[in-house]
Amino acid sequence: MSRRGRPITSPPRIVAIPAVIALLFLGLPIVGLLFRAPWSNLGAVLTSRTSLDALRLSLVTATAATMVAFVIGVPLAWMLARAQFPGRRLARALVTVPLVLPPVVGGIALLLAFGRRGIVGQYFESCCGVTLAFTAPGVVVAEAFVAMPFLIITVEGALRVLDARVEEAAATLGAGRLTIFRRVTLPLLAPALVAGGVLTFARALGEFGATITFAGNLPGVTQTLPLAVYVGLEGDPSEAVALSLILLAVSVGALVLLRDRWLRTGASA
């Protein structure tokens, strides 16, 4: 074996052994999923009532949670990145809490805040007749709680790196704050918005712990795909595997979208 042409900065060959183990460790479960999938009656399983309901609910709630994240998360990211206000550091720390908090704990916390007896939820109940816990909107709340930080952190990071000097130039051309944000900042943020949005959607789609705690597991109402997979595992494992395939497909799709469209160009820009 010739050693010629191998740059000195490349790792020694021995490193390949643990590296391959790591790759197998990450890859084999996926292979297992594909091998054991009930390919023959996949169609029947996937078009069953439970599966279709769960799939529809998952797509709708994950989309809604992502929209919620855009509507209130992007403004928060903008404030965190550019506004001076007391408690900004605390606010920034608060945003990261759902990322590290076990989702089940997040679900309990949501119950204590927005549940029927929660510190805020009781007023929703009494004044507007709105109940969040154990309802489909509750699923959206749970997913948004867990997933929104991905969008906020991605967008805030991009805003901080963004060259504010271009925005200054826009101001000298007669643009006010909102115009600058709409016509200069947002277009420049587009890669971060897409990346953050895809991450948020993927995370919301896979949400399990907070959802089952806060919204329960009612088929057709709050039973999302991950919950259906869990339930299926106890009853009909082949159904669980089939449903898992859907989640896998969506996740891989999100990853491909991120890598090819934005992550690479975003990193080099």
């Binding site: 000097r165 271009v166 130039a169 000298t172 007669g174 200069v184």
Partner: peptide, 21 residues
Amino acid sequence: MPVNRRGIGVVFQEYRLFEHV
């Protein structure tokens, strides 16, 4: 008076063009 109301044109050293349009 805010920057955007002054009507003063500026050519910046690094030009600061809008790269996205």
